[in-house]
């Protein structure tokens, strides 16, 4: 029994979500190999080889893998799938994009966004925005699994010395082409791996007003998130969204500012260790999950909080 874990990376560095996927794969049992598919991704392969418990790193370095396009990447994974019992990826936008394609090409089901491993063929996954947890068993010969990063500890990043092996690229289906990307530039920690997250909602009123959220976040060394309402209103970009269909976070401290607490938002943050809610409406549902609630005007409270830290 061996798992192949797909590395999530940007050709320069390995994303922390991969470390959670490795931990999940360890719980499934057997050996672990990591696939690094990219272009000029040698540093990523080196980093993957240092993860303790990883037996081998496969590297496919070719132009068609530069941007993780689903069609060539799925073809590659399928070409390598033969010996593996489990194909595992983190449930990030890259993993969610390619793994169902892999599963269908292999004619197996995918188990999406697992939050726990029960055994090699049985997993727990949240459904209905996390309002229910389903325990599901796969009858397929190969298990294709995506992993919710926030519920698995991150594997260590040093101590391992896996062999690195180059693999041949698979034929590129040639039906898709990368055009451009517009990535949010930020010096702040990434939302899904930040120790503290400060999020703003509709109550912020404007994108300009998010400055007070950012000031608080910078004081705390925190990542910045948002509710769907704030993203839909155009206050902040889509990649800030925390929730059922956005990012799932579980930091040590989550500060929700001007967020009412719709089910869909709670789905993305209710596993945080400590939740603080700041809202002018004392009846807002967010207070039902918050450890500490502060009712009042966020435009006074947030700057005051920043100052007092």
């Amino acid at each position: 029994m061996t798992s192949l874990v797909l590395a999530d990376h940007d050709n320069a560095s390995l994303k922390a979500s991969t470390l959670s996927a490795v931990t999940a794969a360890q719980q499934m049992g057997g050996d672990i190999h990591i696939l690094v598919a990219g272009q000029g991704c040698g540093a990523v392969a080196q980093a993957a080889a240092k993860i303790p418990g990883v037996a081998k790193v496969l590297v496919a370095d070719a132009a068609q893998y530069a941007n993780a396009l689903a069609e060539p990447l799925a073809a590659l994974i399928v070409s390598l799938a033969g010996p593996y019992s489990h194909l595992v990826a983190s449930a990030t936008s890259a993993g969610k994009n390619v793994m169902p394609r892999v599963a269908a090409l292999l004619d197996v089901a995918q188990i999406s966004d697992i939050s726990a491993v029960v055994s090699a063929d049985t997993f727990v996954r949240p459904i209905y925005a996390g309002n229910a947890l389903a325990t599901v068993q796969s009858k397929d010969a190969k298990k294709v699994v995506t992993v919710r990063g926030s519920t698995f500890d991150k594997a260590k990043t040093d101590g391992g010395s896996a062999a690195i092996e180059n693999v041949s690229p698979a034929a590129d289906p040639g039906v898709s082409r990368f055009v451009s990307q517009a990535l949010s530039k930020s010096e702040r920690p990434e939302l899904t791996s930040a120790r503290i997250v400060v999020s703003g909602g509709r109550g912020m009123g404007s994108g300009e007003n998010f400055k007070i959220i950012e000031a608080l976040a910078d004081k705390l060394g925190a990542g910045v998130g948002a509710s769907r309402a704030a993203v839909d209103a155009g206050f902040v970009p889509n990649d800030y969204q925390v929730g059922q269909t956005g990012k799932i976070v579980a930091p040590e401290l989550y500060i929700a500012v001007g967020i009412s607490g719709a089910i869909q938002h709670l789905a993305g943050m209710k596993d945080s260790k400590v939740i603080v809610a700041i809202n002018k409406d004392p009846e807002a549902p967010i207070f039902q999950v918050a450890d500490y609630g502060l009712v009042g005007d966020l435009f006074q409270i947030v700057p005051e909080l920043t100052k007092s830290l």
């Binding site: 309002n131 947890l133 068993q137 397929d140 004392p282 207070f287 609630g293 502060l294």
Partner: peptide, 24 residues
């Protein structure tokens, strides 16, 4: 179906906490 649902459970309920008076 390829996946068998063995059980569906409610997640652990988060206890609401306290409201605090001010920033301090």
């Amino acid at each position: 179906p390829r996946l068998t649902t063995l059980k569906v459970e409610e997640p652990a309920k988060r206890q609401g906490g306290v409201k605090v008076a001010d920033v301090a």
